[in-house]
Structure formats: structure tokens, C-alpha cells
């Protein structure tokens, strides 16, 4: 039978798992190489490539910009997305499912096209500052996660709890903040984390909106990789992996990692 005791299945699965983990392990190893090109096996051990990251202004400012944009865009998506989901799930509006699909529609447009169209319409034609345009692009990236995750938990929440609050004299506004929000707290955190991680890692949208004064981290690494081939890329990759692990740890502590993959 095909279960965890089946030897063939176990062998194949461990090989596939190794295939998934090994490339990332190789990146970690190359980051300590004391040669100036990325190669294996490494000849000697050094930390100097990590120091080199801080010599690249694009990496430092890129990290800061990526962080700020991801935080603002995720916050904005929650601020705009939660009321919309509340209206869609509580008021039995006509065409509610149409609105739902409309809010999810940015996921159907390839990200590279969203980036390109926004660049032309918002940056070039409307002369919107690049930073604002970045926020807009990343907001579009985040909104579908908010809509999907919050809708799921709003539908699970018993609306009678809220109604009980109204009967006891609680105003709808107060009820929303004191009853609804605490009940969907977990999915708000989950949505925020998904938004943040996806915005922080995004390339296609950020790529178009890399103005002369603004650099995002992933395009900066891509750019560096195309012009240099030294272990600095490995080193910053390792730092990004540590960052990912840290995020996962935070999610696990706050709500349990399972919540963000559902």
C-alpha cells in the first residue's frame, strides 16, 4: 500500500526533498568562499562577502524601501479590503459574488503586465511619484490575499454573536471593532503576513517602477547579478533566507504557520 512505510515511495520522496533543499544549501556554502567567483567546492572560508553587502548602497536602501513599501501596501490592503469583505459577507448585497471576483481579478492579470500598465498610465501619463506608484502596484498585489483570507473567516464567524451585541445596545460601529475584528484577528494577521511576504519578494511590478532615486531590493539583486558574478549575491541570498525563516518563525508563534497556507 502507498503509505509512509512504502520503501519505494519513501526513497523517491526523500530524493525530491533533497532536490528542493540542496540548491539553497549550495547558495549558503558559496557565500563563504574566499575566491572572487561563485564556485564549488570552496577553497577557503571568509565572511568578507557579507561585509561587501554593506558596501552596496543599492542593497541597503533597497532593503529599506522594500520594507517600507511592503508595510504600507499590506496595511492599505487590510484597511480597504476588510470593510469591503464585511459589506460583501454581512449585507446580502445584490451581485456580491460579482464584486468578489472583481476584487480578485488583479490575480488574473500577469504581474509583469500590471507593472507595465501602471508604469505607463500612472508614472508616465499622470506623473505620479514613483514611490506612490510602487505602493499602488503592491496594493493591487496584496488586496486579493486580504479578500480571500478575510472572506473565509468572516463566513466561518457566527453572525449571531454580532447581532447579540446590537440587541444589547452596541452600535454597529462599536460592534465591528469590539466583536468582529477580534473574532477574525487570526486571519487578519495571516493576510498581513502573506501580503507582506509577497510584496517584499515581488519583482515584476517593482522592476518597472525603479526610478533613479528609488531602488527595491529584489531588482537591485537582479541588477547586481547581471553585472557581477561574485559571492556577494550568495551572501545577500543567505540574509534573505534568514529573513524568510524569521518571518516563518513569527507567523508560527503568532497564529501557527498552517493558517497562511490554507
Amino acid at each position: 500500500m502507498l503509505d509512509r512505510r512504502n520503501k519505494t515511495l519513501t526513497t523517491i520522496s526523500i530524493l525530491i526533498l533533497a532536490l528542493i533543499m540542496l540548491p539553497l544549501v549550495l547558495v549558503v556554502i558559496t557565500s563563504f568562499n574566499n575566491e572572487s567567483s561563485i564556485s564549488l567546492p570552496i577553497k577557503g572560508f571568509t565572511f568578507s562577502w557579507y561585509a561587501n553587502i554593506f558596501q552596496e548602497p543599492d542593497f541597503i536602501t533597497g532593503f529599506e524601501t522594500s520594507l517600507v513599501v511592503a508595510l504600507i501596501a499590506s496595511g492599505l490592503a487590510l484597511l480597504i479590503g476588510i470593510p469591503a469583505v464585511y459589506a460583501l459577507t454581512r449585507y446580502h448585497l445584490q451581485h456580491a459574488s460579482w464584486f468578489q471576483s472583481f476584487f480578485l481579478s488583479p490575480t488574473l492579470i500577469p504581474e509583469i503586465v500590471i507593472g507595465f500598465a501602471l508604469y505607463q498610465a500612472v508614472v508616465i501619463n499622470l506623473r505620479t511619484p514613483v514611490f506612490i506608484s510602487l505602493i499602488i502596484g503592491h496594493f493591487l498585489l496584496c488586496l486579493p490575499y486580504v479578500i480571500r483570507l478575510i472572506t473565509a473567516s468572516m463566513l466561518l464567524m457566527d453572525s449571531h454573536i454580532e447581532e447579540a451585541g446590537w440587541i444589547c445596545g452596541c452600535s454597529p460601529q462599536k460592534g465591528f471593532f469590539l466583536i468582529v475584528l477580534p473574532n477574525i484577528k487570526t486571519s487578519i494577521i495571516a493576510a498581513f503576513m502573506m501580503c507582506f511576504i509577497n510584496s517584499f519578494n515581488n519583482i515584476p511590478i517593482s522592476l518597472f517602477m525603479n526610478g533613479p532615486s528609488i531602488t527595491m531590493l529584489p531588482p537591485a539583486i537582479l541588477n547586481y547579478l547581471q553585472n557581477n558574478y561574485d559571492p556577494t549575491v550568495s551572501a545577500i541570498s543567505v540574509l534573505l533566507m534568514v529573513f524568510t525563516a524569521l518571518m516563518m518563525f513569527l507567523v508560527e508563534k503568532a497564529i501557527g504557520i498552517k493558517k497562511i497556507t490554507e
Binding site: I20, M21, P23, L24, L26, V27, T30, I38, L40, I197, F200, N201, I203, P218, I221, L222, L225, V233, S234, S237, L240, M241, T244, A245, M247, M248, I257, T261
Partner: peptide
């Protein structure tokens, strides 16, 4: 989940090494 949440540049760069 770890590779899923790791930046795509990092994951593709790994294959240049290989």
C-alpha cells in the same frame, strides 16, 4: 513552505551555481 516564501531571485540564482 520555506522555499515557497524565499525570494525567486535567490531560488533562480541557486541554479546558476548548478
Amino acid at each position: 513552505l520555506f522555499p515557497m516564501l524565499t525570494n525567486a531571485v535567490v531560488r533562480n540564482f541557486a541554479w546558476i551555481i548548478i
